[in-house]
Design a protein around this nucleic acid. Sequence first.
DNA 1: CTCATTAAGTTGACAGTGTCTACTAAAGCA
DNA 2: TGCTTTAGTAGACACTGTCAACTTAATGAG
Lengths: 207, 207
Amino acid sequence: MPAKEKPDDLREAIIETALAIIESDGLEKLSLRQVARQIGVSHQAPYKHFANRDHILAEVVQRTFDDFASYLDVHPTSDDPRADMAQMGRAYVQYALSHPTQYRLMFGTPLPDAQAFPEMMVSARHAFDLLKACIQRLPNYAQKSAQQIELDALFVWSTMHGLTSLLETQAMQTHALSAETPDTAIAHVLHRIGVALGVEFDSPPYN
Amino acid sequence: MPAKEKPDDLREAIIETALAIIESDGLEKLSLRQVARQIGVSHQAPYKHFANRDHILAEVVQRTFDDFASYLDVHPTSDDPRADMAQMGRAYVQYALSHPTQYRLMFGTPLPDAQAFPEMMVSARHAFDLLKACIQRLPNYAQKSAQQIELDALFVWSTMHGLTSLLETQAMQTHALSAETPDTAIAHVLHRIGVALGVEFDSPPYN
DNA sequence: CTCATTAAGTTGACAGTGTCTACTAAAGCA
DNA sequence: TGCTTTAGTAGACACTGTCAACTTAATGAG
């Protein structure tokens, strides 16, 4: 309970505090009253800036998507599109593993209804567009249709998302996979994606 | 509030009621008190059979995994391993889309700590083993190592899991992908998996 | 300047939650 | 007979999100 000076922009403070709580304790520990308490304001003050809990959550999710997109966008374009692609894949997993609560916030389920918060989804789309642009630069994708690229982006995204989900929940660590390091799994999945797309940007570190 | 006759096996009734609530209203609407109320028992009765909420949840999740595994196992072995594989993939997506709350329960995040409930994970592994067995029967997998199969199973599982997650959250429906039907995306992803594994069990329905 | 309106914040209440403690009733067993 | 365990109940506590009513402070029109 350190910060007690009431900020001039309460709305901003609410979102930042909510982000901080989610980052440290997870979404399920987030409560409006705790946020207000931490800012040093009455438990009803947030309601002057947000209609309800979901509205706060929607904006928090939106900012998390923005943060995620800029993380993916750090190493945008080199002269080797295949290296860019592999780099992006690793950045994806790296973000998910180093920001587990944020990643869960975006792709874990109890999101505020996507239909009701279109701006939230705009930020989500932006991250997806980065992947599409990356695929489009691949050597053998020069003359593919937009639909092809869209579908392959969906495929890549699915695979990366599924991989990180499984790695994070440790669902597979119970038995055999405990032997493999996550890095092996990541490298293998990236390799398989390359085979599927016909680019082979990485050779498998085994066999 | 129909059933008020107190069952002789309260423990069983608790889990079944919890499953029913989750199926109809989702995990976030589940409350121990509501369960007790619906069974017609005091709000503290469940605590005589479960230490806390997470213990109930763990058993519910375990049963959901079992149900999921048997769903995948409906069409076990034909004479064409590639057809089996494709069928399993479709069954996976089909389950996820027709049982969204159950699927979220298994792979959405706020699970009770996996480490603390090993039996829950045993059931999860079983479903994964079904996929491994399916891959192992593929024509070109006869003499691959167990690690290879494990890693490729991880790859396939990841992709299917990611695909269904994205389809379900409708994250991508906002813009361009609204044009494509889910079936197109499913077929495409299955095709890409085939390319990646070198089996090509499905031809793409376009191009 | 005055006064009505509005925004931002307050306190208090309500129903709902998970969980703790203490009680009762019944069953099993020495 | 009496003791202990089991399954259940009742009450309380600290929390939660949200509704309603109140107090300020600022703003802007006449």
